[in-house]
């Protein structure tokens, strides 16, 4: 199917929305409440476009492509509507970017930049920060919330923890936990789905606060080190330190979702108690040793016992925590180096 967006002729798939088609082809149409995983919501109205031959404005997140469709994304009418939305959000919320953790990856900031909005066109409402830091890992500032509903859709539709919802109505509407209690006192299990889906700085990872700007970090995709699900994660690295973990969007088995351990349980990596040097026990206590000394000692003793009592007097515990390649080497070590099948790991425990 062929359509035109912003004068570019594109081949698109049937059933796609205009927004999806635009994104796939690198054309920016602003959006706030849409996320690939939570789908069209029609709430922010900032993704509107005009279509030749159709009256009025249409939300591109919900508009399906059709053959020959001509989509206009930058008419005055479109831009004015988008400006209205962003100006309203900026003037009725507290969107200070200076120390905001989302600075640089904020979708509201992106739209404002795209539209060239420096100062909101409307009267700035007197909005105070409305912070909920009762949770160990999730930090909320309702004054930065644009009520896009992505966190709620994720909490109820993706991870189905059913903690978040909208409460109250109109301008008073807000994202609530349970009976509108602080998140830390609610039934929230802190999986961080809401953080991952929030387009602004309203819901952020508490541990990350002040640890570094998004552009100072680099991301490494890897597999989570906890349970057997094998979630795909991005480690956010700054100065040889993990400062944040996010779920990898679009890749199974987790498609961006994580659990509290996978997302927030990374402190151990930089814990001062990490073993940093080989240790040898002498007279009942450990002393530091060089690798040469330690490995020679091990090699000597294992060889001695093997010679004295045969290879089966030695046992090897491999691990469900190390890689396939390392497990392979461990069993090869047992079988080829030592010569025993006494190799096992804690699969059963």
């Amino acid at each position: 199917m062929n359509i035109t967006i912003k004068d570019r002729e594109l081949e698109v798939k049937e059933g796609q929305t205009v927004l999806q088609a635009a994104r796939e082809n690198g054309i920016y149409i602003p959006s706030l409440c849409y996320h690939d995983r939570t789908g069209p919501a029609g709430k922010c109205r900032v993704c509107v476009v005009e279509v030749e031959g159709m009256a009025g404005l249409h939300t591109s997140c919900s508009l399906e492509v059709s053959e020959g469709m001509k989509v206009i994304t930058d008419s005055e009418k479109v831009l004015e509507a988008q400006k209205l939305v962003v100006n309203l959000l900026l003037s009725t919320g507290k969107h200070d970017c200076l120390s905001c953790e989302q600075n640089g990856i904020c979708e509201l900031q992106d739209v404002a930049y795209y539209l060239g909005i420096e100062t909101p066109a409307f009267h700035m409402a007197d909005v105070k920060p409305e912070i909920d830091d009762s949770s160990e890992f999730v930090y909320l500032d309702h004054s930065k919330c644009i009520l896009c509903g992505r966190c709620i859709a994720g909490c109820n539709g993706t991870v189905v923890n059913e903690v978040l919802d909208f409460g109250y109505r109109g301008h008073e509407a807000k994202v609530i936990c349970d009976n509108d209690v602080p998140m830390g006192h609610s039934s929230c299990v802190q999986c961080g789905e809401c953080v991952q889906l929030c387009p602004t700085g309203a819901i952020i990872d508490k541990l990350r606060r002040g640890k570094g700007r998004p552009w100072e970090t680099h991301k490494v995709q890897t597999t989570c080190g906890y349970c057997g699900v094998g979630c795909q994660i991005d480690l956010h690295i700054k100065d040889n330190e993990v400062i944040d973990i996010t779920g990898k969007e679009g890749v199974g088995p987790n498609f961006g979702s994580l659990c509290v351990k996978g997302r927030y349980g990374y402190h151990f990596l930089n814990d001062p108690a990490r073993l940093k040097t080989p240790l040898i026990r002498t007279n009942g206590s450990f002393r530091e040793a060089s690798w040469d000394e330690a490995l020679d000692l091990v090699a000597k003793n294992l060889n001695r016992i093997k010679q004295e009592s045969g290879p089966d007097a030695i046992g090897v515990f491999s691990s469900a925590r190390i890689t396939n390649e390392e497990n392979y080497l461990m069993q090869k070590f047992a079988r080829a180096t030592i010569g025993t099948n006494n190799v096992d790991h804690c699969a059963r425990l």
């Binding site: 003793n301 004295e308 090897v316 515990f317 691990s319």
Partner: peptide, 10 residues
């Protein structure tokens, strides 16, 4: 009967 164990990551 077993005199030495090499335990990795357990």
């Amino acid at each position: 009967d077993i005199r030495a164990l090499y335990i990795v990551g357990e």
